[in-house]
């Protein structure tokens, strides 16, 4: 039964989250427990300790509604009306310009590196 596999795999994902959060608390790390859980899952998949088939449908199911889970948070903007009617509106151009700089840096750096490595291979 697919539904049972999905539910079981969701519980496994939740288990990785709990382990990640426990590690975060234990070592007092300044990063979210979910990221630690993510790294652990990626590691056990890479090392073939845990097979992809035992997590695939659950993860794919959960991620297909990803944008739903943060809607309650974005609705929180309702509390920040006064911020954006004042000086806070300047935060918008900050985010826009910084995003464009990010894209330029990431795009140019990866494309240049890729071209350089192909050029290197052709010379050999």
């Amino acid at each position: 039964m697919k539904i049972i596999r999905i539910v079981l795999q969701l519980l496994v994902l939740y288990g990785f989250l709990l382990i990640g959060e426990a590690i975060q608390t234990l070592l007092n790390l300044p990063m979210p427990g979910s990221i630690i859980g993510f790294l652990l899952l990626f590691l056990v998949l890479l090392l073939k300790i845990y097979p992809l088939e035992w997590i695939d449908v659950g993860a794919t199911f959960l991620l297909s509604f990803l944008s739903l889970y943060f809607i309650p948070a974005t609705v929180g903007v309702v509390e920040y009306g006064p911020l954006f009617s004042g000086k806070g509106v300047l935060l918008l151009p900050i985010v826009i310009i910084s995003t464009l700089l990010t894209m330029a840096a990431a795009g140019l750096a990866s494309q240049t590196t890729a071209n350089r490595s192909t050029a290197g291979k052709e010379e050999m």
Partner: peptide, 14 residues
Amino acid sequence: IATLLGPAVVALAV
């Protein structure tokens, strides 16, 4: 609903 954010971040490993 927001509780699902944590497991969803873990799921990005797949």
